[in-house]
Amino acid sequence: MKKNIIRYCITALGCLLMALSINAFFVQHHFLSGGISGVSIILYYLTGWPPGITSLIFNIPLFYIAWKFMSRQFFIDSVIGTVLFSLALDGTAFVQAYVNIPDKLLCCMAGGALGGLGGALVYRSEASTGGVDILGFLTKKYYNISVSTTNFLFDCCVMLAAVVFLGLTPVLYSLVLFFITFKATNLFMVGFDYKKQVIIVSTHAEEISQRIMDEVNRGVTILHGEGGYTRRPLQVILVVVKLTQLAHLETIIKEVDPMAFVTIQDANNVFGRGFTQPNLDLEEERRLRK
């Protein structure tokens, strides 16, 4: 119960930030949102209907679909997320009178960053704001069409309708806004503490591994490979390091084996000892293993 309360509090915060981004930065320049809320915002621009209530009404048939075809937990999360977002969207409409930023590109950047943070919080809490997500999960379950594909196709329809009723310029700015929001969501989901996954193929694997453990204080994994041309057995080192440790690691590799083959990749959502759990020094680890 306590875990669910915390999860829904995070969902509420995420919905609040998403709603603030729309009312503070979207509305003044007739920017658009995606999904069902995008349809509601178009109607708001044309008729003045409150987008939160309109979005909630549009979601009612989708709630029935979620109840009938999806799990009960998904249904509950969708209803809670949609209601919270709808209340936040209409409840924060007052900020429109206090925010006036003539620069449209600046509004795209600020709105995308704030909306991306809100979306990341909603996704982190494993919740949903309903809408097209319900159709997306349904098509994925029964037709093996990805959620992102369904969302993309629906958003394309929203954009085409917006071009007809609002003109091309707001739609083009909205596309920039979508891109910034997408990037911001991914950034806040992964976090700012970047990690690098390094794969090292060397004939001096033992020495490099020892120096990494002693000097960088990172554990390593030795993989057993084979040269494709020579068919000789090879030891391959796999190690994940923080960005601040990468330069030291490269120095070690160059000093021990300048001919080593190295690949470096971004590593996301790293968890385990030394990252999300306390790191043991080598002597303590050896003692615990005995």
Rank of each mutant, 00 (worst) to 15 (best):
F182M: 15
K141T: 06
T221R: 07
R273E: 15
F188L: 09
I200L: 07
S146I: 07
P258S: 10
A127P: 04
G219T: 04
S174I: 06
F74H: 04
I53H: 01
Y123P: 03
N269E: 15
F25S: 00
F85G: 00
I36T: 04
G274W: 02
G111K: 00
Q265D: 13
V241W: 00
A19V: 05
I42D: 02
K140Y: 13
E285C: 11
G219S: 11
V190S: 10
T251G: 10
D214H: 11
A161F: 12
L160F: 14
S146G: 11
L280V: 12
T244E: 12
L87T: 04
L121F: 13
H224G: 05
I57C: 11
V220R: 05
N144I: 08
A162P: 01
G272Q: 11
T150D: 03
S125M: 06
T150I: 12
S21I: 01
G225Q: 09
V262T: 13
G81E: 02
V241G: 02
S40K: 02
G112H: 02
E285T: 14
A12V: 03
G119H: 00
I5G: 09
P50S: 12
V198W: 00
L46N: 08
T11W: 02
I134W: 03
S78Q: 03
V239L: 05
L168K: 15
V39F: 07
S55P: 00
S86H: 03
M189I: 15
E207N: 14
E284I: 13
K68T: 05
V99R: 06
A97V: 09
V99E: 05
I5Q: 10
K254C: 10
F31I: 06
Y98G: 06
I222K: 09
S148E: 12
G115D: 02
F75N: 00
F31Y: 13
L43S: 08
L117W: 01
S174F: 05
Y143N: 10
K183A: 13
L249E: 00
D155S: 08
T185Q: 07
L87Y: 07
Q28S: 14
M18K: 04
A184T: 08
E215K: 10
I5D: 09
S202I: 03
R232A: 12
N269K: 12
L153V: 15
G112C: 07
Y64P: 00
L135R: 01
V171Q: 05
T11E: 09
S125P: 04
L17T: 02
A113R: 01
C157A: 15
K68W: 06
I36M: 03
S202N: 07
F58W: 06
V240K: 02
A127F: 03
T149F: 12
G52W: 01
G91N: 11
T54D: 04
T82W: 00
A110Y: 14
Y142W: 15
M109S: 10
T129E: 05
V240D: 01
T11G: 14
Q235I: 05
I57R: 04
